[in-house]
Simulated scan of single mutants.
Amino acid sequence: MSSDRWIRRYHPTESAPVRLVCFPHAGGSASYWHPLSTALRPEVDVLAVQYPGRQDRFTETPLAGITELAAQVVAALGRPDGRPLALLGHSMGAVIAYETARRLERAGSGPAHLFVSGRRAPDRGRPETVHLLGEEELVAHTAALGGTDPSLLADPEIRALALPALRADYAALAGYRPDPPRPLGCPVTALVGDADPVTSEDDARAWEQYSGGEFELDVFSGGHFYLNGRHDEIAAVVSRHLKALV
């Protein structure tokens, strides 16, 4: 498997002392992280994950499971290159980042830091039924979270391209069965919006039991997509932790 299918590097920086792998939300794509890559260059080499079924991979069938996605990302990352590696995921991406961290640890190359954004800790299970919604209800749910311009999903052609991957991602979340909580071998930083309708501050704070080092909770004003347009602020938080690694 070619890593070119799974990993996008918008500002390749081989001289950067640390790498950061970014995982998009449900229905999201690698390009969501382009602004953060811009904000972090050249100090951080940012790698953005591109899931199948979207953008330049739209002809591929979306994967059905969170753990399968994580396993594919681990394979795409390949061997360590000697630089510390950190992981950052938003919403569904936070869960995939966590499962990726677990697999990297089992392979003997665990991450140096895990950032989880806009997602409750894995043991805070709740029924996931979004994938069962009808088309209009699914579009309305997506618009309510604020991650997608409503005018885009009003276009029938864009809907036809975007909704299958979105529904598949929510189905993957519905089928996710995490193992009992066990600390990773690295610090964990959780980020959340103070008005997030799907992830409370308490839900985000529950990630503390997954941290193998220091834990920090950063709360921002805003909803589920609090980070839209605020990548400089997110970059400042990430940079503060990554600088400590080198």
Score class of each variant (00 low, 15 high):
A26M: 08
H231N: 08
L47P: 02
F215H: 06
D202W: 01
A174I: 04
E137G: 03
A76P: 13
V139Y: 08
D155M: 05
L138I: 05
I66N: 03
V130I: 15
A71D: 15
G78E: 06
H131P: 15
R103Y: 11
A174R: 03
L191V: 05
L63E: 14
G125D: 10
A144S: 15
P187A: 08
G82S: 05
E137N: 08
V130P: 10
D218H: 15
A171P: 12
R159N: 08
H141E: 15
G146A: 07
D4M: 04
A140H: 08
Q72Y: 00
E43Y: 00
F58L: 14
L191E: 06
A16Q: 01
T59C: 05
T142L: 13
L88S: 05
A94H: 13
G110E: 13
A101R: 14
A154Q: 15
E105W: 09
I96F: 08
S151L: 09
Y176V: 03
E216G: 11
G222I: 06
R182G: 10
E105N: 12
R126Y: 10
D202H: 10
D179I: 00
G110W: 13
Y210L: 14
P35A: 00
E43W: 10
F215T: 05
P24N: 02
G93A: 12
L227I: 11
V198H: 04
G78C: 09
C186Q: 04
P150E: 02
V219E: 12
A94D: 10
R79V: 13
G223H: 10
V219K: 11
L132P: 09
D194A: 13
G27S: 07
R119V: 09
L191W: 05
G65N: 02
D155V: 05
A160K: 12
A165H: 07
G118W: 12
C22G: 03
A48N: 02
E99N: 14
E136H: 12
A204R: 10
C22Q: 01
A168K: 00
